[in-house]
Design a protein around this nucleic acid. Sequence first.
RNA 1: GCUGGCGUAGCUCAGUUGGUUAGAGCGCUUGAUUGUGGAUCAAGAGGUCCCUGGUUCGACUCCAGGCGCCAGUACCA
Length: 488
Amino acid sequence: MSKFDLPRATRDFLPGETAARNLVRAAFVQSAEAYGFQEIQTPIFEHVELFSARSGPEIKSSMLTFHCDNEEFALRPEMTAPVCRLMSSGLLDLNHLPHKFSYFGPCFRYTRPQSGRYREFLQAGIECLGASGPEVDAEIIAASARTLSSLGIENFNLRIGNIGIFRDLMPDDFDVEEWATVIGHLDRLNGIHEKCRLLAERPDESLLSDLRIDRMELATLQEQTEYTGPYAIADASHLDVTQYASKIGAEAEATFRRLWEVEESIPAETAELLIQISRLRGPVQRVREEAFSLLRGSSSTAALENLFAVCEAVEMYGVDNLNVALGIARGFTFYTSTVFEITSGLADGDRLYCGGGRYDRLVELFGGPPMPSIGCAFRFDTLVEAFCNANAWEQSRPHEIFLLSETKEKLHHAVQFSEELRKCGLRVGVGVGKPTSNRVSDLATHKTDVLAYMGASDSLQLLYAEAEEKAPLDAASVSDRVKSFRNR
RNA sequence: GCUGGCGUAGCUCAGUUGGUUAGAGCGCUUGAUUGUGGAUCAAGAGGUCCCUGGUUCGACUCCAGGCGCCAGUACCA
């Protein structure tokens, strides 16, 4: 029972977990590098103003902040703002764009604990700053998908959308706040559609209770907007399970349609179009036809063409599991066109591995030059978990060989020899004892692959799991023996 | 912020409809035994039953408040 507790919503990682996390990190950095994304590092804390620039001062309450010398700092809650700051810092050569960066590091948010949400978490991502075009988007998307493959995670779902399709349908005088609200609604609608789709494929109690909560909230929204119509939830308060998947989607659509007309002054036909668009989802070829016939003559055709150009470019990389999902909104106002998500697929509850999109005006917002950019971030913890599930991951013992000296007087021989073995690249432990006691067998089980007993003679007795042999006191040959044991 | 669950040995947890001395498995310590991937046997240590107050002859148990943890929800730049 320790005198000190962990700060709320933080974690310790033991050697096995840490090793797995380091492997995932290494795989991430390596596959990013394979596409030319070079790793950068920025400070773990910055001036508070950097992070409130985009989101307003009230965001301060969800950051970990501190004062020093009359300055106020915040532990970074995200990596995008520092990267954009870097772009406008003058350190970078802006004549040779784009800059392709990867980043990896701890971020901090002062949030209520919730499963999978911690106050310190790792964020990993890649960004391509200063370039636009479908090929650029496709490269980011393909690189993200390859990162998952390189971790042995193969059964993922890739969904690509384009937020510009919605944006271009909005009235010209639509301001940022209204846009944020509508994006929130679209995101919500998409989520409900997604859950309904999952529920239709496999009954699941937790999905069902999620949807019940969604439905209650829809009912509240309907009440606020005085909705009356065929999908009034109050009129059909009870649904049996089989109706959930089929009916809630329509109820949600009706609710948001009404909401957009009443509270956002969106014309009825535009609201209808938003609903229709958000439904479109599936393989590229099929959705292409539906989407173009739906949006023919609208102001969104350019964004739509861009979306399918991105999909074509992604397909060149040979990425499977590609779907178009026009309903993806990703919940952030700063995305300007391409948005995408990679999830775990149905079997694992469709958990988010990675999400990102194009943000062509963000660098400017941070005081930099105009710079069309795209980036994405990984859910590192989800990635680690999936990695451990996908691979027969076993924690290694701290030592590959442990030298046991017969007596304390002879220990210096063992220590000297251990140093020679370490030069050969082995992980080596040293101790005193006979290879017979309980303590020693415990050691053998938990702490080392091979136990080596240095008795009276000038040779070593190597004790493996199910065999033993003599070996000369020669670092190179012992090292070879141990390594061949490890590899078999 | 809101809703629910939980808090007993180092760990995972049982238990007590309120009653003498607080339970198990694993782990730990010591010894014996077996030359070898780790057992077997014997003994032992280890507890403010989260805290504070209340009810009671008596509270780990019931009640109230607090703290902590977990899950869901709002939020999530």
